[in-house]
């Protein structure tokens, strides 16, 4: 094909034949929908987490080995789970931006990164607090902790790259490329960290079988944290959409002020 042309699917005014995802990707529709959904998500997250905390503190046993420390797990495990899910969301959004050019894909990726980083940090923090009584030290180079630490570095890289590029469109696309590179390499990194760990510490004695009495509160907390994540993500996306609208208005203002005929145009 000897031409370069735009993909007709990405023209702004093609309303017909849009998929559900495309209609949801319309920023105006998103703002309408999220305005209704956000209070519901936030309320549900609060209720479920409060119920979960009640179960954790008053209705679950202390571990026969770990004692009361085991209650840290109810924060730690959902945070660790969300740290990965958020990265998955960033990767999917990045793919959506680069391949389908959804107008909301970058908004979603941008909003998810700091929240994901925060949960990753929480997972590291709670892991290390739990480690002090268990291992006698705040940090051990356990395979999981190390993997989560690397994930945290990947989040930091994404935030640093975005913040150091002036042009927002450029920043969005380059960050998306990095996110996809990260998600491609993540399994290899995880595999190599596990290999490294077994090489140096043949057994950590860290088992994961959970007593059924602990499983239910853990599930409740995981659901509550996920709802919290979605509420925060939605709020983050709304902020970003609003920020972009303000920016667009101000740019339009600059353009209007410039449109008055000026001497240079007479060249």
């Amino acid at each position: 094909m000897q031409s370069h042309s735009s993909n007709p699917d990405q023209r702004p005014d093609h309303r017909q034949g849009q998929s559900l995802a495309q209609r949801l990707a319309n920023p105006t529709r998103f703002m309408e929908l999220s305005a209704k959904l956000l209070p519901a998500f936030a309320g549900a997250a609060t209720a479920v987490i409060l119920y979960g905390l009640f179960l954790v503190f008053f209705n679950s046993p202390a571990d026969y080995q770990q004692g009361e420390t085991v209650r840290i797990m109810y924060i730690h495990v959902p945070s660790a789970w969300l740290s990965m899910m958020a990265y998955g969301l960033v990767a999917v959004s990045s793919f959506g931006l680069l391949v389908f050019r959804h107008p909301l894909a970058d908004v979603s990726a941008k909003a998810a990164v700091p929240i994901g980083a925060a949960f990753t940090f929480l997972a590291l923090l709670t892991g290390s607090l739990w480690g002090k009584p268990m291992w006698g030290t705040y940090w051990v180079w356990d395979a999981r902790l190390t993997s989560v630490l690397v994930l945290f570095f990947l989040y930091l890289g994404l935030m640093a790259l975005r913040s150091s590029l002036e042009d927002e469109t450029l920043a969005a696309k380059l960050t998306a490329v990095l996110a996809l590179v990260g998600v491609t390499l993540l399994p290899i990194i995880k595999f190599s960290v596990n290999w490294w760990n077994t090489l140096h510490q043949p057994s950590t004695g860290f088992t994961t079988s959970i007593d059924p009495s602990m499983r239910w509160p853990l599930w409740i907390m995981a659901i509550g944290f996920s709802l919290l994540f979605f509420a925060m993500h939605m709020k983050g996306m709304r902020n970003e959409v609003l920020r972009r609208r303000v920016k667009a208005l101000r740019l339009a203002d600059v353009a209007r002020r410039e449109s008055a005929p000026d001497p240079v145009a007479a060249e």
Binding site: F153, G157, A160, L178, V181, L185, S192, W196
Partner: peptide
């Protein structure tokens, strides 16, 4: 920035 972005990706090679 380059260091921050690339070093985590070098972990498998390093290990």
């Amino acid at each position: 920035l380059l260091a921050l972005v690339v070093l985590p990706l070098y972990i498998p090679t390093l290990i």
